[in-house]
Design a protein around this nucleic acid. Structure first.
Length: 424
RNA sequence: GGAGAGGUGGCCGAGCGGUCUAAGGCGCACGCCUGGAAAGCGUGUAUACUACGUGGAGUGGUAUCGAGGGUUCGAAUCCCUCUCUCUCCGCCA
């Protein structure tokens, strides 16, 4: 949610910048400005009526105390009209405020200057790439065949237990998952992130805080009997740890990492793009989250990108880093870098991480603020997050890229976590 | 699942219809005191919206005592609904 002050003071700038996201905000902004003005006017009227009422009530109390019954009763008669007015004004105020809020929530975050213009993923900008794409023979198999051949993942069994998109990992396949999770968590910890093990279901307020609600409720599984949502990413519970909090400036940066399963409904997707591990309803992911001072958030974003990159280098996977263009960047993000690894048998780039700076967009929804030394009052903090990393596609690339025909070689970096160096 | 108790400022805790403009304490900040510190003394110490104002000063209004509704001229205080926490019992990894 954008700050109302910004819209008020720089409405042209807001409209102009949102064009980068291919979003025509002119009507919405005009509506917001009008609602804002109306709200302020009504609130002013309400407040002065309430002030009048408060003064009158107080004087009635004093009159009663002094035993001036008649005067008190006289004053009492005057109140009913004011009371009605207040009631009416408050109804209007609630209505206008709700409309204003509903409109504000529809505005996407303003992209920062580094976001390339564009309408779709073909306009994304390659930042850099690394690693070597392996030369596999014609006999190279995609990961879903390898997973079956070496009895690592059973997709059919998952269908029976739950449904499509819920694979069953077993044996070395299961252990590889656990090893990767440990590897990522340990690396994150070394980089200064505190580990969090959060709840996997969240309430509505949390869903709203990070922007999944009210708009994208279709992405989350809903536990209707308790009105809770299964988390689509650890970003939700971890960022919401700081909902409704006023930090001290000295607490920056807050660095958290969390492993969680992630649940995504992703309704309507099918076809070969979603085969195997490419897209799942339940998957494992290690996330990193930072809360940072507004002046330092872009510096922090770069650090996070370097950190995620270092993981891919250690896993010896061919990767590329991409700056998402205006048409591809998410609603809430101001700048996003995607990480993709090359899955050599499918011959496809697979997204394995998305690192974003949300600036104050989430903070405004969550009321995450800090007190600064020099300024009076509170200022919205900046939030950032990224995957480090999402497991399934990493596993897909690891299996495909490291296949030898009679087995799969485990990269050096995670052997201490797997306890084996080869799958065969 | 059953029974009971309770949600008050950063924290503890009083208040149970009208100077609540929320006591008192702790913590914190600043000042005095001191060679320095502690103690002591003094001052200050929420958030949001809003009006006026300024050199980034400040002053005023309104709202907020878990949330929402109600009663009343007036609600932290009375009533209703919801919610969360705690204790005991039951069940349970």
């Amino acid at each position: 949610m954008l700050n109302l002050n910004l819209i008020r003071e720089k409405s042209d700038y807001v409209i102009e910048r949102l064009k980068i996201k291919n979003f025509d905000a002119s009507e919405l902004v005009a509506g917001i400005l009008k609602l804002d003005e109306t709200r302020r006017r009504i609130q002013g009227e309400t407040n002065s009526k309430e002030a009048e009422m408060n003064a009158l009530s107080k004087s009635i109390g004093i009159l009663f105390k002094e035993g001036k019954q008649d005067e008190a009763n006289e004053a009492r008669e005057k109140t009913s009209r004011i009371k009605d007015d207040i009631k009416e004004l408050n109804l209007k105020l609630d209505e206008v405020s709700a409309k204003l809020q509903n409109s504000l929530v529809l505005l996407p975050n303003i992209p920062c200057e580094l976001v390339p213009a564009g309408t779709s993923e073909k306009d994304n900008k390659l930042i850099r790439s690394g690693g070597k794409i392996p030369e596999l023979g014609a006999a190279a198999q995609p990961h879903w065949e390898l997973a079956e051949k070496y009895r690592l993942i059973d997709f059919e069994l998952g269908n029976k237990i739950t449904g499509a998109g819920f694979p069953v990992y077993r044996g070395k396949g299961a252990k590889l998952q656990r090893a990767l999770i440990n590897f990522f968590l340990e690396e994150n910890q070394k980089a200064g992130y505190e580990e969090i093990l959060p709840p996997l279901v969240v309430n509505e307020d949390s869903g709203f805080g990070t922007g999944q609600l009210p708009d994208k409720e279709g992405m989350m599984y809903h536990v209707s009997s308790d009105n809770l949502y299964l988390i689509p990413t650890a970003e939700v519970p971890v960022t919401n740890l700081y909902r409704d909090i006023i930090l001290d400036e000295s607490e920056f940066p807050i660095m958290n990492t969390a492993y969680t399963p992630c649940f995504r409904r992703e309704a309507g997707s099918y076809g070969k793009d979603v085969r195997g591990l490419n897209r799942l309803h339940q998957f494992d992911k290690v996330e990193i989250v930072q809360i940072q001072h507004p002046d330092k958030s872009y510096e922090t974003l770069d650090e996070m990108v370097k950190h995620v990159e270092s993981l891919l280098i250690k896993l010896e996977l061919p990767y590329r880093i991409i700056a998402l263009c205006g048409g591809d960047i998410s609603f809430a993000s101001a700048l996003t870098y995607d990480f993709e690894v090359f899955s050599a048998a499918q011959k496809r780039w697979l997204e394995v991480s998305s690192v974003s700076n949300f600036e104050s967009f989430q903070a405004n929804r969550m009321k995450l603020r800090y007190k600064s030394q020099e300024n009076k009052g509170t200022i919205l903090a900046h939030t950032l997050n990224g995957s480090s990393l999402a497991l399934p596609r990493i596993v897909a690339a690891l299996l495909e890229n490291n296949q030898t025909g009679d087995g799969i070689t485990i990269p050096e970096a995670i052997r201490q976590y797997t306890g084996f160096s080869r799958i065969d």
